[in-house]
Design a protein around this nucleic acid. Structure first.
Length: 505
RNA sequence: GCGGCAGUAGCUCAGUUGGUAGAGCGUCAGCUUCCCAAGCUGAAAGUCGAGGGUUCGAGUCCCUUUUGCCGCUCCA
Protein backbone atom coordinates (compact mmCIF):
# COMPACT_ATOMS: atom_id res chain seq x y z
CA UNK A 1 0.00 0.00 0.00
CA UNK A 2 2.84 2.33 0.78
CA UNK A 3 4.06 1.65 -2.71
CA UNK A 4 0.63 2.52 -4.12
CA UNK A 5 0.64 5.81 -2.28
CA UNK A 6 3.96 6.65 -3.83
CA UNK A 7 2.75 5.79 -7.31
CA UNK A 8 -0.35 7.88 -6.68
CA UNK A 9 1.82 10.87 -5.81
CA UNK A 10 3.90 10.32 -8.92
CA UNK A 11 0.73 10.13 -10.98
CA UNK A 12 -0.53 13.45 -9.60
CA UNK A 13 2.85 15.04 -10.31
CA UNK A 14 2.89 13.56 -13.81
CA UNK A 15 -0.65 14.78 -14.49
CA UNK A 16 0.41 18.29 -13.62
CA UNK A 17 3.81 18.29 -15.24
CA UNK A 18 2.59 16.91 -18.55
CA UNK A 19 -0.55 19.03 -18.84
CA UNK A 20 -3.40 16.75 -17.81
CA UNK A 21 -4.74 18.22 -14.60
CA UNK A 22 -3.90 21.47 -12.79
CA UNK A 23 -5.03 22.72 -9.39
CA UNK A 24 -7.65 25.41 -9.93
CA UNK A 25 -6.51 29.05 -9.75
CA UNK A 26 -3.01 27.91 -8.98
CA UNK A 27 -1.45 31.37 -9.22
CA UNK A 28 -3.63 32.32 -6.27
CA UNK A 29 -2.55 29.22 -4.32
CA UNK A 30 -5.30 27.03 -5.67
CA UNK A 31 -8.63 25.99 -4.21
CA UNK A 32 -9.11 22.87 -2.16
CA UNK A 33 -10.63 20.03 -4.15
CA UNK A 34 -11.12 22.01 -7.35
CA UNK A 35 -9.10 21.07 -10.42
CA UNK A 36 -8.85 22.18 -14.02
CA UNK A 37 -8.40 19.82 -16.93
CA UNK A 38 -5.45 20.88 -19.05
CA UNK A 39 -4.72 20.40 -22.74
CA UNK A 40 -4.30 16.61 -22.56
CA UNK A 41 -6.69 16.01 -19.68
CA UNK A 42 -9.59 17.60 -21.51
CA UNK A 43 -9.03 15.33 -24.53
CA UNK A 44 -9.02 12.27 -22.31
CA UNK A 45 -12.16 13.43 -20.54
CA UNK A 46 -13.93 14.25 -23.80
CA UNK A 47 -13.00 10.86 -25.20
CA UNK A 48 -14.41 9.03 -22.19
CA UNK A 49 -17.59 11.10 -22.33
CA UNK A 50 -17.98 10.45 -26.04
CA UNK A 51 -17.40 6.76 -25.59
CA UNK A 52 -20.10 6.68 -22.91
CA UNK A 53 -22.55 8.77 -24.90
CA UNK A 54 -22.10 6.63 -27.96
CA UNK A 55 -22.67 3.37 -26.16
CA UNK A 56 -25.61 4.66 -24.11
CA UNK A 57 -27.46 6.96 -26.53
CA UNK A 58 -26.32 6.24 -30.06
CA UNK A 59 -26.30 2.46 -29.61
CA UNK A 60 -29.73 2.21 -27.96
CA UNK A 61 -32.92 2.79 -29.91
CA UNK A 62 -34.85 3.51 -26.73
CA UNK A 63 -32.49 5.92 -25.00
CA UNK A 64 -32.28 9.63 -25.77
CA UNK A 65 -30.05 12.32 -24.34
CA UNK A 66 -30.75 15.72 -22.85
CA UNK A 67 -28.68 18.49 -21.30
CA UNK A 68 -30.56 20.12 -18.45
CA UNK A 69 -29.59 23.32 -16.66
CA UNK A 70 -27.56 23.41 -13.49
CA UNK A 71 -30.03 25.84 -11.89
CA UNK A 72 -33.37 24.29 -11.05
CA UNK A 73 -36.48 25.47 -9.28
CA UNK A 74 -35.85 25.37 -5.51
CA UNK A 75 -38.85 23.07 -5.05
CA UNK A 76 -37.02 20.37 -6.97
CA UNK A 77 -34.63 19.93 -4.06
CA UNK A 78 -37.43 19.89 -1.52
CA UNK A 79 -39.19 17.18 -3.50
CA UNK A 80 -36.00 15.18 -3.97
CA UNK A 81 -35.27 15.31 -0.25
CA UNK A 82 -31.92 17.03 -0.67
CA UNK A 83 -32.84 20.14 1.29
CA UNK A 84 -33.50 18.05 4.37
CA UNK A 85 -30.99 15.30 3.89
CA UNK A 86 -28.06 17.36 2.69
CA UNK A 87 -27.49 19.57 5.70
CA UNK A 88 -26.25 18.59 9.09
CA UNK A 89 -25.86 20.70 12.22
CA UNK A 90 -22.37 19.97 13.48
CA UNK A 91 -20.78 20.76 16.84
CA UNK A 92 -17.18 20.30 17.98
CA UNK A 93 -15.92 19.47 21.42
CA UNK A 94 -13.05 21.85 22.10
CA UNK A 95 -11.22 19.43 24.40
CA UNK A 96 -11.39 16.16 22.52
CA UNK A 97 -11.44 17.92 19.13
CA UNK A 98 -14.15 15.51 18.07
CA UNK A 99 -17.03 16.57 15.90
CA UNK A 100 -20.58 15.40 16.28
CA UNK A 101 -23.88 15.95 14.65
CA UNK A 102 -25.72 18.07 17.19
CA UNK A 103 -29.03 16.30 16.64
CA UNK A 104 -27.34 12.93 17.10
CA UNK A 105 -25.98 14.01 20.50
CA UNK A 106 -29.50 14.85 21.59
CA UNK A 107 -30.89 11.65 20.09
CA UNK A 108 -28.33 9.70 22.11
CA UNK A 109 -29.42 11.54 25.23
CA UNK A 110 -33.03 10.64 24.50
CA UNK A 111 -32.02 7.03 23.94
CA UNK A 112 -30.53 6.99 27.43
CA UNK A 113 -33.79 8.17 28.96
CA UNK A 114 -35.63 5.50 27.01
CA UNK A 115 -33.24 2.97 28.47
CA UNK A 116 -34.14 4.18 31.95
CA UNK A 117 -37.82 3.69 31.21
CA UNK A 118 -37.15 0.20 29.90
CA UNK A 119 -35.29 -0.68 33.08
CA UNK A 120 -38.22 0.52 35.18
CA UNK A 121 -40.49 -1.61 33.05
CA UNK A 122 -38.28 -4.66 33.49
CA UNK A 123 -38.04 -4.16 37.22
CA UNK A 124 -41.78 -3.79 37.53
CA UNK A 125 -42.39 -6.80 35.32
CA UNK A 126 -40.26 -8.92 37.62
CA UNK A 127 -42.02 -7.61 40.69
CA UNK A 128 -45.57 -8.10 39.46
CA UNK A 129 -45.00 -11.25 37.45
CA UNK A 130 -48.03 -12.45 35.50
CA UNK A 131 -50.20 -9.60 36.66
CA UNK A 132 -47.98 -6.97 34.99
CA UNK A 133 -49.80 -4.70 32.57
CA UNK A 134 -47.21 -2.78 30.61
CA UNK A 135 -49.55 -0.28 29.03
CA UNK A 136 -51.05 0.61 32.33
CA UNK A 137 -47.65 0.82 33.96
CA UNK A 138 -46.42 3.22 31.31
CA UNK A 139 -49.50 5.35 31.72
CA UNK A 140 -49.43 5.54 35.51
CA UNK A 141 -45.92 5.20 36.92
CA UNK A 142 -44.79 8.64 37.96
CA UNK A 143 -41.11 8.28 37.17
CA UNK A 144 -41.90 6.84 33.76
CA UNK A 145 -44.39 9.57 33.04
CA UNK A 146 -41.88 12.22 33.98
CA UNK A 147 -39.32 10.70 31.65
CA UNK A 148 -41.77 10.27 28.81
CA UNK A 149 -42.75 13.89 29.21
CA UNK A 150 -39.07 14.87 29.21
CA UNK A 151 -38.46 13.03 25.95
CA UNK A 152 -41.45 14.73 24.38
CA UNK A 153 -40.28 18.18 25.45
CA UNK A 154 -36.74 17.61 24.26
CA UNK A 155 -37.56 16.16 20.89
CA UNK A 156 -40.23 18.77 20.26
CA UNK A 157 -37.75 21.55 20.96
CA UNK A 158 -35.04 19.88 18.90
CA UNK A 159 -37.32 19.42 15.92
CA UNK A 160 -38.47 23.02 16.14
CA UNK A 161 -34.88 24.21 16.28
CA UNK A 162 -33.97 22.09 13.28
CA UNK A 163 -36.97 23.27 11.36
CA UNK A 164 -36.37 26.95 12.12
CA UNK A 165 -32.62 26.47 11.83
CA UNK A 166 -32.26 27.94 15.29
CA UNK A 167 -28.75 26.70 15.97
CA UNK A 168 -28.24 28.90 19.02
CA UNK A 169 -31.19 27.34 20.80
CA UNK A 170 -30.07 23.89 19.76
CA UNK A 171 -26.78 24.60 21.49
CA UNK A 172 -28.59 25.90 24.57
CA UNK A 173 -30.54 22.67 24.62
CA UNK A 174 -27.31 20.66 24.63
CA UNK A 175 -25.97 22.86 27.41
CA UNK A 176 -29.16 22.64 29.48
CA UNK A 177 -29.20 18.87 29.19
CA UNK A 178 -25.55 18.91 30.30
CA UNK A 179 -24.60 16.62 27.45
CA UNK A 180 -20.92 15.83 27.58
CA UNK A 181 -18.55 14.58 24.94
CA UNK A 182 -18.45 10.77 25.18
CA UNK A 183 -14.70 10.81 24.73
CA UNK A 184 -13.39 13.68 26.82
CA UNK A 185 -16.37 13.94 29.15
CA UNK A 186 -16.12 17.67 28.64
CA UNK A 187 -18.99 20.08 28.03
CA UNK A 188 -16.76 22.62 26.35
CA UNK A 189 -18.59 22.94 23.00
CA UNK A 190 -18.16 25.20 19.99
CA UNK A 191 -21.17 26.86 18.44
CA UNK A 192 -23.24 24.71 16.16
CA UNK A 193 -22.65 25.25 12.49
CA UNK A 194 -24.77 24.13 9.62
CA UNK A 195 -22.88 22.08 7.09
CA UNK A 196 -24.90 22.33 3.96
CA UNK A 197 -23.77 19.92 1.30
CA UNK A 198 -25.53 21.95 -1.39
CA UNK A 199 -24.04 25.16 -2.74
CA UNK A 200 -26.50 28.00 -2.91
CA UNK A 201 -26.69 31.37 -4.53
CA UNK A 202 -29.35 34.00 -5.22
CA UNK A 203 -31.29 34.47 -8.36
CA UNK A 204 -32.84 37.84 -9.11
CA UNK A 205 -31.67 41.39 -8.61
CA UNK A 206 -30.62 42.57 -5.19
CA UNK A 207 -33.25 45.29 -4.91
CA UNK A 208 -36.11 42.92 -5.41
CA UNK A 209 -37.00 39.82 -3.57
CA UNK A 210 -34.39 37.18 -4.26
CA UNK A 211 -34.82 33.46 -4.50
CA UNK A 212 -32.38 31.08 -2.94
CA UNK A 213 -31.28 28.69 -5.67
CA UNK A 214 -28.97 25.72 -5.43
CA UNK A 215 -26.28 24.40 -7.69
CA UNK A 216 -27.53 20.90 -8.41
CA UNK A 217 -25.96 18.23 -6.19
CA UNK A 218 -26.86 15.58 -8.78
CA UNK A 219 -27.89 15.66 -12.41
CA UNK A 220 -30.67 13.09 -12.04
CA UNK A 221 -33.39 15.57 -11.10
CA UNK A 222 -32.95 17.34 -14.42
CA UNK A 223 -34.13 14.16 -16.07
CA UNK A 224 -37.04 13.52 -13.72
CA UNK A 225 -38.50 16.99 -14.18
CA UNK A 226 -38.25 16.53 -17.95
CA UNK A 227 -39.75 13.06 -17.93
CA UNK A 228 -43.12 14.15 -19.36
CA UNK A 229 -41.62 16.50 -21.94
CA UNK A 230 -39.23 13.93 -23.32
CA UNK A 231 -41.70 11.06 -23.20
CA UNK A 232 -44.30 13.03 -25.14
CA UNK A 233 -42.14 14.90 -27.66
CA UNK A 234 -39.90 11.90 -28.25
CA UNK A 235 -42.93 9.56 -28.40
CA UNK A 236 -41.05 7.28 -26.04
CA UNK A 237 -42.54 3.96 -25.03
CA UNK A 238 -41.71 2.26 -21.77
CA UNK A 239 -39.17 0.85 -21.23
CA UNK A 240 -37.01 3.80 -22.26
CA UNK A 241 -34.11 5.82 -20.96
CA UNK A 242 -32.98 9.43 -20.74
CA UNK A 243 -29.25 10.11 -20.49
CA UNK A 244 -27.21 13.16 -19.76
CA UNK A 245 -23.77 14.27 -18.72
CA UNK A 246 -23.05 17.37 -16.72
CA UNK A 247 -21.62 19.11 -13.72
CA UNK A 248 -22.89 18.63 -10.20
CA UNK A 249 -21.73 20.34 -7.03
CA UNK A 250 -21.34 19.17 -3.46
CA UNK A 251 -19.85 21.11 -0.62
CA UNK A 252 -17.94 18.16 0.79
CA UNK A 253 -16.57 18.67 4.28
CA UNK A 254 -13.48 16.77 3.35
CA UNK A 255 -12.68 16.56 -0.31
CA UNK A 256 -9.47 14.78 -1.05
CA UNK A 257 -7.70 12.19 -3.13
CA UNK A 258 -7.06 14.36 -6.15
CA UNK A 259 -9.94 14.31 -8.65
CA UNK A 260 -11.64 11.42 -6.85
CA UNK A 261 -13.71 13.65 -4.63
CA UNK A 262 -14.13 17.15 -5.95
CA UNK A 263 -16.58 19.86 -5.00
CA UNK A 264 -17.42 20.38 -8.66
CA UNK A 265 -17.60 17.19 -10.65
CA UNK A 266 -19.16 15.68 -13.71
CA UNK A 267 -21.66 12.85 -13.80
CA UNK A 268 -22.75 10.68 -16.69
CA UNK A 269 -26.09 9.20 -15.85
CA UNK A 270 -29.07 7.51 -17.39
CA UNK A 271 -32.50 7.03 -15.91
CA UNK A 272 -34.33 4.05 -17.32
CA UNK A 273 -38.13 4.12 -16.93
CA UNK A 274 -39.86 0.75 -16.57
CA UNK A 275 -43.13 -0.85 -15.60
CA UNK A 276 -43.70 -1.25 -11.87
CA UNK A 277 -42.65 -4.76 -10.90
CA UNK A 278 -40.11 -5.06 -13.70
CA UNK A 279 -37.51 -2.83 -12.09
CA UNK A 280 -35.42 -5.61 -10.56
CA UNK A 281 -35.16 -7.41 -13.88
CA UNK A 282 -33.91 -4.21 -15.48
CA UNK A 283 -31.64 -3.56 -12.52
CA UNK A 284 -29.88 -6.86 -13.28
CA UNK A 285 -29.81 -6.02 -16.97
CA UNK A 286 -28.08 -2.68 -16.40
CA UNK A 287 -25.69 -4.14 -13.89
CA UNK A 288 -24.38 -6.40 -16.58
CA UNK A 289 -24.49 -3.89 -19.39
CA UNK A 290 -22.65 -1.24 -17.41
CA UNK A 291 -19.93 -3.65 -16.34
CA UNK A 292 -19.51 -4.64 -19.99
CA UNK A 293 -19.02 -0.99 -20.82
CA UNK A 294 -16.27 -0.66 -18.26
CA UNK A 295 -14.53 -3.70 -19.63
CA UNK A 296 -14.80 -2.24 -23.13
CA UNK A 297 -12.50 0.57 -21.98
CA UNK A 298 -9.76 -2.02 -21.97
CA UNK A 299 -8.94 -1.81 -18.27
CA UNK A 300 -8.23 -5.13 -16.53
CA UNK A 301 -11.27 -7.03 -15.26
CA UNK A 302 -9.71 -7.75 -11.87
CA UNK A 303 -9.73 -4.04 -11.11
CA UNK A 304 -13.53 -4.09 -10.94
CA UNK A 305 -16.03 -5.52 -8.53
CA UNK A 306 -19.65 -5.08 -7.57
CA UNK A 307 -20.52 -3.90 -4.12
CA UNK A 308 -24.18 -4.52 -3.36
CA UNK A 309 -25.73 -2.19 -0.82
CA UNK A 310 -27.20 -3.84 2.22
CA UNK A 311 -28.45 -0.62 3.73
CA UNK A 312 -30.61 0.98 1.10
CA UNK A 313 -31.38 4.66 0.76
CA UNK A 314 -34.98 5.63 1.42
CA UNK A 315 -35.76 5.79 -2.29
CA UNK A 316 -34.18 2.53 -3.44
CA UNK A 317 -35.21 -1.11 -3.44
CA UNK A 318 -31.92 -2.38 -4.85
CA UNK A 319 -28.55 -0.75 -5.26
CA UNK A 320 -25.04 -1.71 -6.23
CA UNK A 321 -21.80 0.08 -6.86
CA UNK A 322 -19.29 -0.78 -9.49
CA UNK A 323 -16.08 -0.34 -7.58
CA UNK A 324 -12.68 0.17 -9.11
CA UNK A 325 -9.35 -0.54 -7.53
CA UNK A 326 -7.76 2.89 -7.40
CA UNK A 327 -4.28 3.42 -6.04
CA UNK A 328 -5.92 3.94 -2.65
CA UNK A 329 -8.08 0.82 -2.76
CA UNK A 330 -11.47 -0.23 -4.15
CA UNK A 331 -13.80 2.78 -4.35
CA UNK A 332 -17.11 3.59 -5.96
CA UNK A 333 -16.91 4.45 -9.61
CA UNK A 334 -20.50 4.00 -10.70
CA UNK A 335 -23.79 3.48 -8.90
CA UNK A 336 -26.67 1.44 -10.23
CA UNK A 337 -29.82 2.05 -8.25
CA UNK A 338 -33.35 0.85 -8.52
CA UNK A 339 -34.97 4.10 -7.39
CA UNK A 340 -38.55 2.79 -7.48
CA UNK A 341 -41.07 5.50 -8.35
CA UNK A 342 -39.85 7.68 -5.50
CA UNK A 343 -38.60 10.65 -7.52
CA UNK A 344 -41.46 10.86 -9.99
CA UNK A 345 -44.01 10.38 -7.22
CA UNK A 346 -42.47 13.10 -5.15
CA UNK A 347 -42.47 15.48 -8.12
CA UNK A 348 -46.05 14.55 -8.78
CA UNK A 349 -46.86 15.38 -5.18
CA UNK A 350 -44.92 18.64 -5.03
CA UNK A 351 -45.76 19.98 -8.48
CA UNK A 352 -49.32 18.74 -8.69
CA UNK A 353 -48.58 17.45 -12.22
CA UNK A 354 -49.38 13.88 -13.11
CA UNK A 355 -46.06 12.13 -13.65
CA UNK A 356 -47.67 9.13 -15.25
CA UNK A 357 -47.45 7.01 -18.33
CA UNK A 358 -50.35 5.37 -20.09
CA UNK A 359 -49.33 1.86 -21.00
CA UNK A 360 -51.43 0.80 -24.00
CA UNK A 361 -50.51 -2.84 -23.60
CA UNK A 362 -51.70 -2.96 -20.00
CA UNK A 363 -54.37 -0.38 -20.69
CA UNK A 364 -53.51 1.46 -17.48
CA UNK A 365 -51.72 4.50 -16.15
CA UNK A 366 -48.88 4.36 -13.68
CA UNK A 367 -45.93 6.25 -12.28
CA UNK A 368 -42.98 4.48 -13.90
CA UNK A 369 -40.25 2.86 -11.87
CA UNK A 370 -36.70 3.97 -12.46
CA UNK A 371 -33.37 2.19 -12.72
CA UNK A 372 -30.50 4.63 -12.59
CA UNK A 373 -26.93 4.22 -13.77
CA UNK A 374 -24.73 7.07 -12.60
CA UNK A 375 -21.01 7.20 -13.19
CA UNK A 376 -18.43 9.77 -12.17
CA UNK A 377 -16.62 11.07 -15.24
CA UNK A 378 -13.73 12.48 -13.23
CA UNK A 379 -13.38 9.22 -11.35
CA UNK A 380 -13.31 7.36 -14.63
CA UNK A 381 -10.56 9.68 -15.82
CA UNK A 382 -8.65 8.87 -12.66
CA UNK A 383 -9.24 5.14 -13.13
CA UNK A 384 -7.96 5.32 -16.70
CA UNK A 385 -5.00 7.50 -15.75
CA UNK A 386 -3.91 5.38 -12.83
CA UNK A 387 -4.17 2.16 -14.80
CA UNK A 388 -2.32 3.65 -17.74
CA UNK A 389 0.51 5.07 -15.65
CA UNK A 390 3.51 2.81 -16.09
CA UNK A 391 7.15 3.15 -15.18
CA UNK A 392 9.25 0.84 -17.33
CA UNK A 393 12.82 -0.26 -17.19
CA UNK A 394 14.06 -0.91 -20.70
CA UNK A 395 16.57 -3.52 -21.83
CA UNK A 396 19.35 -0.96 -22.20
CA UNK A 397 18.88 0.02 -18.56
CA UNK A 398 17.15 3.32 -19.24
CA UNK A 399 13.71 4.12 -17.87
CA UNK A 400 10.58 5.55 -19.39
CA UNK A 401 7.21 6.68 -18.10
CA UNK A 402 4.38 5.59 -20.39
CA UNK A 403 0.69 6.28 -20.20
CA UNK A 404 -0.69 3.10 -21.70
CA UNK A 405 -4.13 4.43 -22.51
CA UNK A 406 -6.52 2.35 -24.56
CA UNK A 407 -5.88 3.91 -27.97
CA UNK A 408 -9.45 5.08 -28.29
CA UNK A 409 -9.12 7.22 -25.15
CA UNK A 410 -5.65 8.64 -25.79
CA UNK A 411 -5.61 12.47 -25.99
CA UNK A 412 -3.50 12.47 -29.14
CA UNK A 413 -3.58 9.50 -31.47
CA UNK A 414 -0.63 10.28 -33.69
CA UNK A 415 2.65 12.16 -33.42
CA UNK A 416 4.28 13.15 -36.71
CA UNK A 417 8.05 13.35 -36.42
CA UNK A 418 10.64 14.23 -39.07
CA UNK A 419 13.69 12.18 -38.21
CA UNK A 420 15.92 15.21 -38.69
CA UNK A 421 15.14 18.88 -39.13
CA UNK A 422 16.49 19.20 -42.67
CA UNK A 423 16.50 17.73 -46.18
CA UNK A 424 12.82 18.58 -46.66
CA UNK A 425 11.63 16.20 -43.94
CA UNK A 426 9.80 18.89 -41.90
CA UNK A 427 7.92 19.92 -45.03
CA UNK A 428 6.96 16.34 -45.81
CA UNK A 429 5.90 15.85 -42.19
CA UNK A 430 3.63 18.91 -42.31
CA UNK A 431 2.07 17.58 -45.47
CA UNK A 432 1.26 14.31 -43.68
CA UNK A 433 -0.05 16.30 -40.70
CA UNK A 434 -2.51 18.16 -42.90
CA UNK A 435 -3.67 14.86 -44.33
CA UNK A 436 -4.30 13.25 -40.90
CA UNK A 437 -5.62 16.19 -38.87
CA UNK A 438 -9.23 15.93 -40.05
CA UNK A 439 -9.40 12.38 -38.74
CA UNK A 440 -7.19 12.32 -35.67
CA UNK A 441 -5.74 14.50 -32.94
CA UNK A 442 -2.18 14.84 -34.22
CA UNK A 443 0.90 16.45 -32.81
CA UNK A 444 3.97 17.62 -34.68
CA UNK A 445 7.42 17.68 -33.10
CA UNK A 446 10.82 18.29 -34.64
CA UNK A 447 12.78 19.41 -31.58
CA UNK A 448 15.56 17.23 -30.09
CA UNK A 449 16.72 13.72 -30.88
CA UNK A 450 14.14 11.25 -32.13
CA UNK A 451 14.44 9.04 -29.06
CA UNK A 452 13.62 11.89 -26.75
CA UNK A 453 10.59 12.78 -28.85
CA UNK A 454 9.35 9.20 -28.57
CA UNK A 455 9.66 9.47 -24.80
CA UNK A 456 7.72 12.71 -24.77
CA UNK A 457 4.90 11.04 -26.66
CA UNK A 458 5.05 8.04 -24.31
CA UNK A 459 4.61 10.41 -21.39
CA UNK A 460 1.33 11.74 -22.78
CA UNK A 461 0.19 8.33 -24.02
CA UNK A 462 0.19 8.87 -27.78
CA UNK A 463 -0.30 5.37 -29.23
CA UNK A 464 1.32 5.97 -32.63
CA UNK A 465 4.43 7.82 -33.74
CA UNK A 466 4.97 8.34 -37.45
CA UNK A 467 8.52 9.08 -38.49
CA UNK A 468 9.59 10.64 -41.76
CA UNK A 469 13.05 9.60 -42.97
CA UNK A 470 15.03 9.52 -46.24
CA UNK A 471 13.08 6.49 -47.41
CA UNK A 472 9.88 8.51 -47.02
CA UNK A 473 11.21 11.04 -49.48
CA UNK A 474 12.02 8.25 -51.93
CA UNK A 475 8.86 6.12 -51.86
CA UNK A 476 6.19 7.79 -49.68
CA UNK A 477 6.38 5.30 -46.82
CA UNK A 478 6.81 6.06 -43.13
CA UNK A 479 7.63 4.10 -40.03
CA UNK A 480 4.84 3.79 -37.49
CA UNK A 481 5.85 3.06 -33.92
CA UNK A 482 3.67 1.32 -31.38
CA UNK A 483 3.77 3.02 -27.99
CA UNK A 484 3.68 -0.12 -25.84
CA UNK A 485 5.93 -2.50 -27.77
CA UNK A 486 8.09 0.30 -29.23
CA UNK A 487 8.16 -1.80 -32.40
CA UNK A 488 8.06 -0.14 -35.79
CA UNK A 489 6.53 -1.02 -39.11
CA UNK A 490 6.94 0.63 -42.44
CA UNK A 491 3.71 1.52 -44.21
CA UNK A 492 2.64 3.72 -47.08
CA UNK A 493 1.50 7.25 -46.23
CA UNK A 494 -1.81 6.48 -47.91
CA UNK A 495 -2.38 3.59 -45.52
CA UNK A 496 -1.83 5.49 -42.27
CA UNK A 497 -5.45 6.46 -41.79
CA UNK A 498 -6.92 2.98 -42.24
CA UNK A 499 -4.08 1.42 -40.25
CA UNK A 500 -4.74 3.63 -37.23
CA UNK A 501 -8.50 3.44 -37.54
CA UNK A 502 -8.35 -0.35 -37.46
CA UNK A 503 -6.47 -0.22 -34.18
CA UNK A 504 -8.92 2.24 -32.65
CA UNK A 505 -11.60 -0.47 -32.65
C1' G B 1 -13.54 21.58 10.72
C1' C B 2 -9.43 19.77 14.40
C1' G B 3 -4.24 18.03 15.02
C1' G B 4 0.80 16.91 12.92
C1' C B 5 4.22 17.90 8.84
C1' A B 6 5.38 20.78 4.58
C1' G B 7 5.46 25.06 0.68
C1' U B 8 12.40 28.32 -2.67
C1' A B 9 12.44 28.31 -11.15
C1' G B 10 7.85 23.91 -14.99
C1' C B 11 10.08 19.41 -11.87
C1' U B 12 13.60 17.55 -7.86
C1' C B 13 16.05 20.11 -4.36
C1' A B 14 20.51 23.25 -2.02
C1' G B 15 20.81 27.86 0.56
C1' U B 16 26.03 28.40 6.68
C1' U B 17 25.11 31.72 13.64
C1' G B 18 19.91 36.71 9.65
C1' G B 19 23.85 40.04 5.03
C1' U B 20 20.09 41.48 -1.61
C1' A B 21 18.78 33.67 -4.40
C1' G B 22 21.70 28.74 -6.73
C1' A B 23 22.27 23.57 -9.08
C1' G B 24 20.56 19.45 -11.98
C1' C B 25 16.71 18.15 -15.12
C1' G B 26 13.05 20.43 -18.16
C1' U B 27 11.72 24.68 -21.53
C1' C B 28 13.15 28.08 -25.61
C1' A B 29 16.76 29.62 -29.76
C1' G B 30 20.75 27.79 -32.63
C1' C B 31 24.37 23.85 -33.97
C1' U B 32 24.96 18.57 -34.40
C1' U B 33 22.18 14.14 -35.28
C1' C B 34 19.07 8.67 -40.31
C1' C B 35 15.39 5.57 -35.02
C1' C B 36 14.43 5.16 -28.79
C1' A B 37 15.96 10.68 -23.19
C1' A B 38 20.57 13.00 -20.47
C1' G B 39 26.42 15.88 -27.38
C1' C B 40 27.75 21.50 -28.01
C1' U B 41 26.58 26.98 -27.51
C1' G B 42 23.39 30.56 -25.74
C1' A B 43 18.86 32.40 -23.32
C1' A B 44 14.50 32.96 -20.57
C1' A B 45 12.41 31.76 -16.09
C1' G B 46 11.63 32.83 -8.81
C1' U B 47 8.21 39.77 -5.41
C1' C B 48 11.60 32.33 -1.72
C1' G B 49 2.90 30.41 -0.94
C1' A B 50 0.48 35.32 0.94
C1' G B 51 0.06 39.35 4.67
C1' G B 52 2.07 41.60 8.93
C1' G B 53 5.93 42.08 12.80
C1' U B 54 11.15 42.14 14.97
C1' U B 55 15.81 44.09 12.70
C1' C B 56 20.26 48.74 9.80
C1' G B 57 19.08 44.20 7.00
C1' A B 58 14.48 38.32 6.78
C1' G B 59 14.25 32.60 2.19
C1' U B 60 16.24 32.15 7.41
C1' C B 61 13.27 34.58 13.71
C1' C B 62 7.83 35.67 15.51
C1' C B 63 2.41 36.10 14.47
C1' U B 64 -1.69 35.50 11.11
C1' U B 65 -3.47 33.35 6.75
C1' U B 66 -3.65 30.04 2.51
C1' U B 67 -2.58 25.50 -0.13
C1' G B 68 -0.85 20.39 -0.08
C1' C B 69 0.14 15.66 2.45
C1' C B 70 -1.06 12.32 6.73
C1' G B 71 -4.47 11.17 10.80
C1' C B 72 -9.41 12.16 12.91
C1' U B 73 -14.42 13.71 11.60
C1' C B 74 -18.19 13.66 7.58
C1' C B 75 -19.86 11.33 3.07
C1' A B 76 -28.20 11.57 0.97
Amino acid sequence: MANHEEIFKKLIAHAKEYGFIFPSSEIYDGMAAVYDYAQYGVELKNNIRQHWWKSMVQMHENIVGIDSAIFMHPSVWKASGHVDAFSDPMIDNKDSKKRYRADMLIEDYIAKIEEKINKEVEKAAKRFGEAFDKTQFLATNERVLANTEKIKTISHRMNQDLEKNDLADLKSLIEELEIACPISGSRNWTDIRQFNLMFSTQMGSLSEETNLVYLRPETAQGIFVNFLNVQKTGRMKIPFGIAQTGKAFRNEIVARQFIFRMREFEQMEMQFFVRPGEELKWFEHWKKERMDWHLSLGLPIEKYRFHDHEKLAHYANAATDIEFEFLFGFKELEGIHSRTNFDLSRHQEFSGKKMQYFDTELNESYVPYVVETSIGLDRTCLAVLSTAFTEEKLEDGSERVVLKFPAILAPYKIAVLPLVKKDGMPEKAHEIMRQLMPSFMCQYDEKDAIGRRYRRQDAIGTPFCITIDTTTLENDTVTIRDRDSMKQERIAISEIESYVKALLK
